[in-house]
Structures are given as C-alpha cells and as structure tokens.
C-alpha cells in the first residue's frame, strides 16, 4: 500500500491502540500459557525434571521417545501452543513421549560440565524412561545442542538406543556460513577457561540477536497489524516472547567446554572429542539415525547438520530437509505436517 507518512502514522497508531486495548483487559486476556500439554513428573534431580506426557486415547506405539532440548532457552518451544506442538503431534500418533527439562542453573551449578550432562543427567533420564516404559531400548530425539548431547550419548551407550533422531543439530561447527564459529575460534583459551560462574541468559540472548541484529531487534515489531488482526496471532507472538525472554543461564563449566570442544576446536567432527576420558566416535552408532535439517537455518547452517552423514553408515543414515528456520522448522504450521509424516514413517 502506497500511503503518505501521515497515513502510515494513523494506521500504526490505530494498531497500537488496539494492542493497548488488548493489554488493558489483562484480566480477560492474561498472558497465554505455554507447554500446556498435560504431563507428569516422573523424576527430578537438582534442577532437572523428567516428564512423561499423558497418553491420548489412541493405540500406543511400543517404543517411547525421549526428547532432549538444548541448554539454551526453555524446552517448551516444542509444545508452544496446541496447533504448533510437536509433542501433541507425536502423542496423536500414539508415541509415548518423555521430555527432559534441564531447569534453571544457579551459582551452585557452575561446575556442571558436559560429562555431568551427558553421562550423568541424560544417562539417568534414559534409565528412568527404560524402567518407566519397561523397554530395554528407547528412541532419542535431540534438538540442536540436545542433538549433540544425544549423538554423544548414543556413541557412548549404544545399547540403550533403538533409533536416534537429530533435529537442527550441528556436527561440523566449522562449516561455512557459521558466524558463531567465526567469532568463537579467535578467542584465546585463557579467555574461555578463566571465566568462572554461569553465563547469563541475557548475554546468550544478545549473542543470538547479534547474528541478525536488524531483523531480530527491530523488524519483528513491524508486524503490528498482523498481530492485532487476530487474537491467535497475538497469542502466538506473546508465547514466543515468553520463550525468548525466560531463558536459563548456562552452567559455566559446560558452556566453556562446549565453546572450546565444539565451536573452537570442532572436536566431534574431527573425531578427537573425549568426554570423561572416553573417545566419542559417532561411527560407533549402530542404530538407524534420522537427521533433520532446516534449509533457512542461520544458527545451525544446513552444511553443519549434513556433516553427520560422514560419520554414520549409509545404510543406517537418512536425511530430511524442512523449509524453515532454526525454530520454524518444527513450530511452523507449514512444515509440521511434513515433519510428523516423515517421523511416523521412519520411526514405525
């Protein structure tokens, strides 16, 4: 629409008034709930909680799926709202679904390292899921850094896993178009290891905003008309804001180790990664692996994800491309149908 600046101001002001009217009735329009799919706590340890989602009234599949999200941001992004919920889609297909919520680390967690997360927390969660579901093997679905943890876990404990799904998971941290890598590789070892204490979530937020500064800091606020045109649009926006602004701090040791091992030295892809003195060789994964990537992912470029194919036997490896960004790949209504169809076909 080609309009004068005065008309633009009028339109924007009218939309802003609608937004204010919505917020002014906050008793009628409270902040929308997130992660609302019913679930039950089956295990907790320190800040970690392991949930089992309540099964729907459909025929149940045999093997449970344990979802492992990244340490950055909260895992309820996979259950943001019913129509975008990956969890609900899986439950509708009859999969028993479990989720690890890593919680909010505090200062007493600053010495939690990658070994604690992978061979400690994740290991114990897997054992609990096996016991709870009475299965000797489970399926693991790792998202982003959760996928990295899942890959390491699978390589170290292959007997626990029937099938592994990695979603927007980086393997080659030195692939092209990875701005984070460009920034991280030049930082000295001393700068990394001398930092004690946790990494504040505000800093992490700012780091991710800096990858696309103008888009993420300003452009999203230009969509006011779209938001106030329909209540559900605004509610989706509010839920995303909740997710973006309530991230946990990162346990200091784990953050330093991840930065050093993966971003700086790319040890997983170079086959030189050790955790608790054990070599992590992805070639030791002998179960089927489905590797899902997002074609417009600016945080984990497709080339970083595709590198997994160099480590898994071709007979075991399958790849799926989704047209979307890092989060949009599994929250977008456009891609979700394809995602769940392919997952069901592959998982069985």
């Amino acid at each position: 629409m080609n309009c004068s600046n005065n008309q633009y101001d009028d339109i924007w002001q009218d939309d802003f008034v609608l937004l204010m009217d919505y917020f002014s009735e906050s008793n009628k329009n409270p902040p929308p709930t997130v992660g609302a799919t019913p679930k039950e706590l089956i295990y907790s340890e320190n800040k970690l909680r392991l949930f089992r989602y309540k099964a729907l009234d459909v025929k149940q599949k045999r093997t449970p799926i344990l979802i492992t999200y990244a340490l950055v941001n909260r895992p309820f992004i996979i259950d943001l709202e019913p129509k975008r919920s990956l969890v609900l889609r899986l439950l509708e297909q009859g999969y028993p679904v479990y989720l690890i919520d890593w919680g909010y680390p505090d200062s007493t967690d600053c010495f939690t390292g990658l070994n604690d997360y992978i061979n400690g927390y994740l290991y114990r969660c897997v054992q609990h899921v096996k016991r709870d579901s009475k299965k000797k093997k489970i399926d693991l679905l790792g998202i982003c850094q959760g996928g990295v943890f899942s890959l390491c876990y699978n390589a170290l404990h292959p007997a626990d896993i029937r099938k592994l799904v990695t979603l927007v998971t980086p393997v080659d941290f030195h692939a092209d178009d990875n701005l984070l890598k460009d920034w991280a590789t030049g930082i000295s070892q001393e700068a990394l290891t001398q930092q004690t204490g946790n990494v504040p979530s505000l800093l992490i937020n700012q780091l991710f905003k800096t990858l696309k500064p103008f888009q993420l800091s300003r452009d999203k606020y230009r969509q006011l008309k779209h938001l106030v045109s329909k209540k559900e649009n605004l509610e989706t926006f509010l839920r995303m804001e909740q997710w973006l602004n309530n991230g946990p701090d990162l346990a200091g040791l784990a953050a330093n180790e991840f930065m050093d091992d993966f971003y700086k030295h790319n040890r997983l892809h170079r086959k030189t990664l050790t955790i608790n003195k054990k070599n992590i060789r992805l070639e030791r994964i002998k179960n089927p692996v489905l590797n899902i990537l997002a074609t417009r992912d600016h945080i984990v470029p497709p080339s970083a994800t595709k590198a997994l194919s160099e480590h898994i036997k071709p007979a075991l490896y399958q790849e799926l491309s989704l047209n979307g960004g890092h989060i949009g790949a599994f929250t977008s209504l456009k891609t979700q149908q394809k995602l769940i169809t392919e997952l069901v076909k592959w998982l069985g």
């Binding site: 600046n5 802003f16 937004l19 902040p31 230009r222």
Partner: peptide, 28 residues
C-alpha cells in the same frame, strides 16, 4: 498502562512497540 498493574511482560512489549514504532516513523 505503564503505571497500571498489567503484567510486566505486557509493559515491556508495549514499550518495545512504542520505541520501534517511533523508529520506523522517523525512518520513513
């Protein structure tokens, strides 16, 4: 609204929209 008892997250969002609205207004 900023002085009222609406949730703090609503106040933050309003301020962000107001600031960015002013930004785009000035840009145009």
């Amino acid at each position: 609204l900023l002085q009222s008892n609406i949730p703090d997250e609503y106040k933050d969002i309003l301020q962000n929209f107001q600031q960015q609205g002013a930004f785009y207004q000035q840009l145009l």
